[in-house]
Amino acid sequence: MSDDLDFMPATPGKDELVNPDGPDQAKPSGTPAGDSGGDPGGDGDRAPGERAELPTWNRSRRKRKANVKAEKEDDAFQRGVRKASRQVIDTPKLVLGAIVIAVLVIGGGVMLTNRSAQGDAEAARTLQAATAAIVRGQVVPPEEQERLGDSLQMYRMPIFTTEDERAAAIAAAMAEAKSSGRDQVEQNATLVAAAQAVQAGDFDAALADYALFLDDAGRDHPLRFLALEGQGNAFEAKGELDAALASFQAIAPYPSDYYRPMALYHQGRVLEALERTDEALAIYRQYLEEFPKEELATPMVRDRLEALDPEFAALLSAPASAPPISP
C-alpha cells in the first residue's frame, strides 16, 4: 500500500469539519463548496482541472518522523542486544538449552508462587533480580548510556556499566536468595546456581547443586524435570553417558508425563553416543508413535531417523495412498 495513504485526512463527522489549524480556523458550515473562506491556499484559487494539494498533517506520520533520531541513537544498543541473543542461540544446545529455560521459568514464575507471605515475596524478588541479570542483563558503557539517555528505559532490562559489575550484582543477589531462610526460594536459587555452573563449564559444581536440589525439592517440585535435564547434560558433558541416560530416563518415565517428548529425544541421542543404535532407533520410533502430532523435538527426531534408517523415514514422509475407487 502506498505511503500516500498516510496523508489521507480523517473523515469529518456529520456536523463537524476537521481542520489541523485548530478550532478558530474551522470553516463555517455554510461555506459554499469550492470556496476557501478567504484562505489564499484554498480550493478557490485553484485553476480548473488543477489537482488539489493533499493535506500533510497526519499525526501518525509526524510522530514517525519525530522518532527517526531516537531510532538511530538506539541502533548501537539494539545491535548489542541482538548480538547477545545470537551468542545464546549459537551456544551448544545440549549445554545451554535447559539453562535459559530454567532461569526464565524461575525468574518469571517464582514471584507468583511466593506471594502468600511477605517474607517469601521479598526473597523471591531477590532471586528474580538475579535471574533477570543472568538472562537479560546488558553491559552498556557510561558514555553510551549518556548518549542513549531516556531511550534506555524502553528496553526494560538490567543495565550495567561493566561485566564485573554485572557479575557482582548476580553473585550478591544469588547469595542473598540462597541464605534467605525460605525453603522454596533457596531450592530455586540452588537450581539457578547449578545452571550457572554448567554455563561456566564447572560440571562438578553443577552436579553437586543439581543433587542438592533433587534431594531437597522432592518428586513433586514443578521444576524437577529441568533439574534432571540439567543433570543429564552435565553428566554428558563429562563423558559419563550411562549416568546421563539414567537422568534423562527419570525425567518423564510415563507417556502422560510433561516433557516426555524431550526426555525421549535425549535418551535417543545418548544411546547413539553409546553406539547402541538399535535401541536409539527404537526410542525414536516410540517417540513418533506416542506423539504423532508435531512437538518440540519432532524435527530433531525425524532428522536422526533419516540418518539412521532412511527407508523408515521415507515411509513416514510418503503421502498416504488414495482409497480404491468402487466400480
Rank of each mutant, 00 (worst) to 15 (best):
M1N: 07
D4P: 00
L5T: 04
P9E: 12
P9T: 00
A10K: 13
T11Q: 12
K14L: 11
N19R: 10
D35V: 00
D35A: 05
S36R: 04
D39L: 10
D43F: 11
G44I: 01
A47R: 14
N58L: 10
R62P: 06
K63F: 12
A66Y: 15
A66K: 15
A70R: 11
E71W: 05
E73H: 10
D74H: 08
A76Q: 13
R79S: 09
V81C: 05
Q87H: 14
T91A: 14
P92S: 06
L94I: 02
L94R: 08
L104P: 00
V105Q: 13
V105M: 11
G109L: 05
N114K: 08
R115T: 09
Q118Y: 02
G119Y: 02
A121F: 15
E122D: 14
A123W: 04
A124N: 04
A124W: 13
L127Y: 10
Q128T: 04
A130G: 05
V140A: 09
P141T: 06
E144R: 11
R147T: 09
R147D: 07
L148D: 06
G149D: 02
G149E: 04
S151C: 07
S151N: 11
M157I: 02
I159R: 03
T161M: 09
E163I: 00
A168K: 04
A169D: 11
A171E: 15
A173E: 07
A173F: 13
K178F: 03
K178A: 09
R182F: 08
Q184R: 13
N188G: 02
A189V: 04
A189C: 09
V192W: 11
A193F: 14
A194H: 02
A195D: 10
Q199F: 14
G201M: 05
A211I: 07
F213Y: 14
R219K: 05
Q231C: 03
G232E: 01
F235E: 06
A237K: 15
G239P: 10
L241E: 06
F248H: 03
Q249K: 07
Q249T: 01
Q249V: 01
Y254E: 13
P255L: 10
S256K: 14
Y258V: 10
Y259T: 00
Y259D: 02
P261W: 02
M262Y: 03
A263K: 01
Y265G: 00
G268I: 01
R269V: 01
L274Q: 09
A280Q: 07
A280K: 01
R285P: 02
Q286M: 01
Y287D: 02
P292Q: 09
P292M: 08
T298S: 11
T298I: 03
M300A: 14
M300K: 15
L308T: 09
F312P: 02
A314G: 12
S317D: 10
S317W: 09
A318T: 13
A318I: 06
P319Y: 04
S321V: 00
P324Q: 04
I325T: 13
S326Y: 12
P327W: 06
P327M: 08
